[in-house]
Amino acid sequence: MTVHTVDRLEDVPDPSPDATFVVVDVIISSTSIVRLLEAGASYVRPFADADEARAFAADTEDAVLVGEQGGQPVDGFDCSPLPSLIAQREFADRPVGILTSNGTRAVSRIGHGADVLIGSTVNAAAVAAHLRERDRDVWLVAAGRQGDPTPEDSAGVELIRRCYEDGSTDFDPADLAAQVRESGTAEWLQNLGFENEVEDLCAFNTSDVVPRLVDGRFVAE
């Protein structure tokens, strides 16, 4: 079994190989999906197109749309994907559609029929433990931003890789936490007054939820 890493979704081979993929979009899609499932969402369906997401909401009873494009709200959507704002709403037993600039686009590129997990800094150890139970090649995919690598996604991939290869979290994560805090995206969040979001991302391995794509929907593994 081989573990591959890429620093941006554009480097994923096309067509996608037969493997398990872990999509890592730390700020913010991956973390949002983890938190939505923790909040009791019946499932989280990723979208790369806003019109498709709105059509899903129109056809699905009690659905909620969560999303952003370029960091801005999306017309017809109910909630930002920031975890602190997700925590203020009720998602228990509700189907959720999610659209983000990079993370859900990465899932779409890999393909909804592939074996896809969601990884972030908050669930890295749980993802690594799940991967060790499988006998397949693994691709750890940092989503990046519009074709460019991002420090926070690369840090998330590295954290999962270390947890997977070491079989433990017995290493000093300070450098990876600094990489997240000093990223441009984290600085943007801090300037908006969401310092708490960044610190939550640096509280590594706080969740046991491993989202897995089943029939085009993420459910808790």
Rank of each mutant, 00 (worst) to 15 (best):
3 V>A: 01
6 V>L: 12
8 R>S: 08
10 E>W: 11
19 A>H: 02
22 V>S: 07
23 V>A: 03
27 I>L: 14
29 S>V: 14
31 T>D: 02
33 I>D: 01
34 V>E: 10
39 A>I: 14
40 G>H: 10
42 S>C: 05
43 Y>F: 15
47 F>R: 11
58 A>D: 04
60 T>W: 04
63 A>T: 07
65 L>C: 12
68 E>G: 13
70 G>P: 03
71 G>L: 15
73 P>E: 04
73 P>A: 07
75 D>Q: 12
75 D>W: 07
75 D>N: 13
75 D>Y: 09
77 F>Y: 14
80 S>K: 10
82 L>P: 02
82 L>H: 12
89 R>D: 11
89 R>P: 10
95 P>S: 12
100 T>Y: 15
110 I>C: 04
116 V>N: 03
117 L>I: 06
118 I>N: 07
120 S>K: 01
120 S>T: 01
121 T>E: 00
127 V>D: 00
132 R>A: 15
134 R>G: 05
143 A>C: 15
149 P>E: 02
156 G>R: 03
161 R>H: 05
161 R>W: 05
162 R>I: 02
169 T>F: 00
172 D>T: 04
173 P>Y: 05
173 P>T: 15
177 A>M: 15
178 A>K: 05
181 R>T: 05
181 R>G: 01
188 W>P: 00
189 L>T: 08
193 G>Y: 13
194 F>N: 11
197 E>K: 03
201 L>N: 06
202 C>Q: 03
204 F>T: 04
210 V>E: 04
210 V>Y: 02
212 R>K: 07
212 R>A: 10
